[in-house]
Amino acid sequence: MNIGIFIYPEAEVLDFSGPFEVFSTASRLCDGNKAFTVFLIAEHNAVVSARAGYKVLPDYSVEDHPLLDVLVISGRVHTTEMENKVVTDWIKGQAHSVKLIATVCTGVFLLAQAVQSLSCKVTTHWEDIPDLRNMFSRLNVVDGVRWVDEGNIVSSGGISAGIDMSLHLVSRLHSEELAAKTAHQMEFAWTKNT
């Protein structure tokens, strides 16, 4: 199963690193039966300067990545990426082909901008909930939860909540047992409730 994590300038480091660690660890624990192939995707095949100058080299660009089963969209403090038509068009296209889209933190802003018909229950970082409600009134924005699962759309609160959400996705896409083993391997106290 191909898991593509979309990153962009100023992306919050744990928003993409946390899910990457979850899926790569889960795959490593599958006794040689690789469950997930996880990789980073950016607009271009060039180094991305994430939050606080953290430099990341994506595996693929939006033009040359393998077919995805799951797209994870990371977040960041500013949502100026919402004005990038190349990115929003790409996300819109992926929404029609992937099995599932997950967002971490303010990544949900990008998804809502790209998929104007999106109307479901979502969440984001507590600090950004008022803006999300004001900008996208068609969404049912939930406060006080780590993540929300709406079938083919799964969203999480900020930063570390993306790890909880990703462990949930491992349990959903593979097994509860693998998700629990992954959390234990990562020495992470997995919050299972939504």
Rank of each mutant, 00 (worst) to 15 (best):
A189C: 14
E177D: 15
V170Q: 14
S175A: 11
K192F: 03
F136D: 01
T124P: 04
W190L: 11
T124I: 01
S155C: 10
T191E: 09
K192V: 03
S166T: 00
P130K: 13
W126M: 06
R172I: 01
R146M: 10
S137W: 05
N152Q: 09
D164I: 04
W126T: 05
E176F: 12
T124M: 05
M135F: 09
W190E: 08
I129R: 00
D131A: 10
I163Q: 06
G144P: 02
D149S: 01
A180I: 13
W126E: 12
T191I: 13
H125E: 08
M165P: 14
I129F: 03
R146C: 10
S137R: 14
R133H: 10
G144S: 08
I163G: 07
I159W: 05
N152F: 05
E127D: 09
T182A: 12
S160V: 07
L132F: 05
D149E: 04
R146E: 09
H184D: 12
R146S: 14
M165F: 13
A183G: 04
I129Q: 02
P130E: 11
I129E: 02
G158F: 11
G158Y: 09
H174K: 15
H125R: 12
E176H: 15
E176W: 10
W126Q: 12
S160A: 10
I153V: 12
E176R: 14
L132H: 06
E176I: 10
H174M: 13
L169E: 07
V145A: 04
K181N: 15
D143A: 13
R146K: 15
W147N: 02
G162F: 04
T191P: 04
M165K: 12
S160P: 09
H125T: 06
G151Y: 01
G157A: 13
A189M: 13
S160R: 03
D131E: 07
M165A: 15
T194H: 14
